[in-house]
């Protein structure tokens, strides 16, 4: 059974997302909406991460180490300014996609296992992840023309 492995991937992804939102909130604190909403989203992901831990415990098996490739590619450059904001939002969006897909995979397993608790958890967390994605997409769409066409 590879469920634990995948839960591990999810756990790691939510952890990365938690840190990434925190990082972006801190880095772009001059953008008041970014700072506050990213802090909120970081708290959401931290909460998701906490929920996963219980299931990791429950399905604990030998875990393969998932390399955090994604983390290395994202947020690596020391960017600043309007373009940096757009790129950081872009990367956050990608990370939420990673998390979302993990939840989809885990939920499928929960259905197969008839694990009602895990199913409920996956449903709730996937819904909140979508709200993160939706917000990021809206903000990216707003920022894109100004950033690419006008900003210095």
């Amino acid at each position: 059974m590879h469920l634990a492995t995948y839960l591990g991937l999810l756990e790691d992804s939510e952890k990365q997302l938690t840190d990434a939102f925190e990082h972006v909130a801190e880095k772009h604190r001059d953008e008041p909406d970014i700072e506050q909403i990213c802090q909120k989203f970081s708290a959401w992901s931290r909460n998701h991460h906490g929920q996963i831990l219980g299931f990791v415990e429950k399905y604990l098996e030998e875990q393969e180490d998932e390399p955090d490739k994604l983390k290395r590619d994202l947020f690596a450059r020391n960017r600043s300014g309007a373009l940096a904001l757009l790129r950081d939002l872009h990367d956050l969006w990608l990370l939420t996609q990673q998390v979302q897909l993990c939840w989809t995979v885990i939920r499928q397993a929960a259905l197969g296992l008839r694990d009602e608790e895990l199913k409920a958890c996956a449903t709730e967390c996937a819904a909140r992840t979508k709200r993160q994605t939706d917000w990021l997409l809206g903000r990216v769409k707003q920022a894109a023309p100004q950033t690419l066409l006008v900003a210095e």
Partner: peptide, 9 residues
């Protein structure tokens, strides 16, 4: 919109 986040539907 999402009343908590402001994300447009």
């Amino acid at each position: 919109e999402d009343l908590e986040t402001g994300a447009p539907r």
